[in-house]
Design a protein around this nucleic acid. Sequence first.
DNA 1: GCCTTTTGTTGATCTGCGTCAAAGCCCGGC
DNA 2: GCCGGGCTTTGACGCAGATCAACAAAAGGC
Lengths: 249, 249
Amino acid sequence: MLNERSLSVAPDCSDCPIRHRAVCARCESDELERLEQIKYYRKFEAGQSIIWAGDRMDFVGSVVSGIATLSQAMEDGRTQMVGLLLPSDFVGRPGRNTAAYDVVATTDVVMCCFRRAPFEDLMKRTPHIAQRLLEMTLDELDAAREWMLVLGRKTAREKIASLLSIIARRDATLNKRGAAAGPIVFNLPLTREAMADYLGLTLETVSRQISALKKDGVIQLEGKRHVTVPDMSRLMDEAGDDADGGLLV
Amino acid sequence: MLNERSLSVAPDCSDCPIRHRAVCARCESDELERLEQIKYYRKFEAGQSIIWAGDRMDFVGSVVSGIATLSQAMEDGRTQMVGLLLPSDFVGRPGRNTAAYDVVATTDVVMCCFRRAPFEDLMKRTPHIAQRLLEMTLDELDAAREWMLVLGRKTAREKIASLLSIIARRDATLNKRGAAAGPIVFNLPLTREAMADYLGLTLETVSRQISALKKDGVIQLEGKRHVTVPDMSRLMDEAGDDADGGLLV
DNA sequence: GCCTTTTGTTGATCTGCGTCAAAGCCCGGC
DNA sequence: GCCGGGCTTTGACGCAGATCAACAAAAGGC
């Protein structure tokens, strides 16, 4: 899910020779070595389903590159995205053997996985890992709660502005562009439908509100996916957040 | 927040002579002893605010008795409840010194608190505590995500049915009545307004939908708060959940 | 190149829920 | 007993967003 901590770790993770900094940012080298021994990689293509809710899940892991979504579906087909998995985000849950959500690769995805049983053993012997996981999970929880406010109380326009502003911020963090005053440019990693699933809207409403924000000069669009935000504070205003704190608590 | 694990721990917690089983269910006696040395109690009256979002927060703790709510507000007054704190639920976050949410006592509340600094020290020396906290936090995260589906995709009627069914289940668990086939009876611990804040609705809509469920025989009401559910599976049907899994993942 | 499929836009209409308003219920104070 | 304030219910009405539908614009496939 989107939050400061996972973002700040992301670049390290993809550079890190053993590719699991996210899990073990503070571990000593011998602990890293033990993690190293049980890890393996899996690749998924864009559009491919990584896990189905209810499936047996005998691994945990973290995203190395690409973007995946976490979502729930009702029998009648209504679906709600409950998380967006970015590089360094953790998937799976120690102590549970079935998946609670559908996980789908939005782009090509590489994951760094650990078989669950050895990982749990290792966690018992390595307090740092549980502490690191606790930190990450608390961040996820904050992000999920922040999103409950978006889903429960914001208007469609505010929802779109919230999503754009969160993606803009993520992008700025990933690319090490600090709080630049100038215009911000990024690509939307999601289809209109995926955005709708994240925001609890229909894809038509998403499209309409994006057009409206464009007409009002809050954003500029080239093609369908390339977004320019001339004035970030204006966008955050539209999102209805407090000027500074913003969406990341 | 509402979930199986916290529920199952609750009765033990209130019986436990040192009142922090929730945090340390698996600890050895000397670890319990160390926790014991840094704990203290705080009492709050119904309606009283326990913490304001943004306040400095120099303790963590767990609810011993009573019910409190966790919520976020926008500047214009719109508020969204993001969690319901029941006995044994944990409040506060190691590693952060300001509160992220408003916490309000719905009934009279007793909390068992630990000053943050000594608690964090203890956590570093006691791996069980971090592991236990991780488990609890993962449960909270699941509950929050489950609620995202409710907020984003369910109709008002389904939302009400979801809330009633979750409270009914909690009540059954607390009172050790298993999956009884017969009618289920409980008291609503929340005002219509608090329910609205939880469900992302207005209090009028909450009231109307409760009346509708009553008219349709899904529930019976005596007074405003005393609810009888003649057929639990019917209620869960109305909530739109899969028959078995239900809201607790 | 052309054809099919996926993705996105825009319009017309419908409806669920919010908003505004009035009145009923229940409890506690005096 | 009466009164006042918090909570709840119910009605009338309007609007934001869903739904249904048509079309445009990219993206592959061959």
